[in-house]
Design a protein around this nucleic acid. Structure first.
Lengths: 172, 172
DNA sequence: TAAAACCAGTTTCGATTTGCAACCAGTTGA
DNA sequence: TCAACTGGTTGCAAATCGAAACTGGTTTTA
């Protein structure tokens, strides 16, 4: 995570912030999984992030302005991480990367269903989702209907379908 | 550049291929700068990539299917790197990342003008650009008009404007 | 024809980063 | 009182990065 000012190219500057193996994973879990606490991100991580890496990335993303950190009123030791507008603005990047990965890589169905919905929904859905994220993270007005709930439900349905198929394929 | 199969999530799998500081820089130079030879990528790199890193990333991107490599008939030692369809399909990802970087980071004007045009052009322009890349890299039919030429000309104009401004600001 | 420049990398090596595991001190709820 | 939970930190071995020098061969130039 060196801080080299290599060039003023937008792609390069973006990579100097997000160009590593974990930063976008952390942001993805906060954005799509609504993980807001350190232990929650650590325990529910599909990819098994280490606590020192998570601590480093959270600190870095706060420094860079993609996340904010505040104390949780309900517990003296709890910290709440929230997306800033800069973090919320990554929705189209996630949509593009998700669509690319879904097309060319060996994704699992239940984990790619959200990428599919996000891609099919297009910019109009992204904007609704971003409005919802502003509500959850920045105290903006809530949207008329929740995109996150749709994405999460589609994921759960796909997961349940797969588990049902696995059970029926495994005779007692 | 470890090859850990962490999860089947499209974002995670995409990061396992592109989640580092240099892979997308190399692809950017091939895609937007039409750099096709090793020395050309090395010498014209705005970010100053080291030769061992460049060699490693080219090899890796060929293995992963984003690039192909063939010998150059004009010179026994020359190798030509080309984008595959998988590489060309990254155009929307570059567009989204470029737009994000342009909005939130300290980009220089002449290097961000292409990102601006790509973002403003939207999916229709991206598709024209991808068709042009298929022509340049995969021997497909050429498009009616070149997007790359437009992007490159806009960059050169912006660069010339800045240099003119610098000269006029530096009295002899 | 000999030297110079060009070609795609490889090698070496010190500095940095990663990732695992153990650990910590304060807080909370039972 | 005590176990579980809180957001991390520390120590350490292994992997990776990155700058510079170098390689073996080809092509161009004087």
């Amino acid at each position: 995570m060196r801080e080299t000012g290599r060039s003023g190219c937008p792609i390069n500057l973006t990579l100097e912030i997000l160009g590593d193996r974990w930063s976008l994973i952390v942001l993805r879990d906060i954005m799509f999984g609504n993980r807001r606490h350190f232990r929650e991100m650590l325990a529910k991580s599909d990819e098994g992030i280490a606590s020192n890496i998570l601590a480093d990335r959270l600190k870095r993303l706060v420094e860079k302005g993609l996340l904010s950190r505040r104390d949780d009123a309900s517990h003296k030791q709890k910290a709440i991480y929230s997306l800033t507008e800069m973090g919320i603005a990554l929705v189209p990047v996630f949509a593009a990367m998700g669509e690319w990965g879904r097309t060319f890589l060996a994704v699992t169905e239940e984990l790619s269903i959200r990428a599919e919905l996000l891609s099919e929904g297009g910019p109009a859905l992204w904007e609704r989702f971003m409005q919802e994220l502003r509500h959850l993270h920045l105290d903006a007005a809530p949207p008329e209907q929740s995109v996150l709930a749709e994405l999460t439900q589609a994921y759960r349905d796909a997961l349940a379908r797969r588990q049902a198929a696995e059970i029926s394929a495994t005779p007692a």
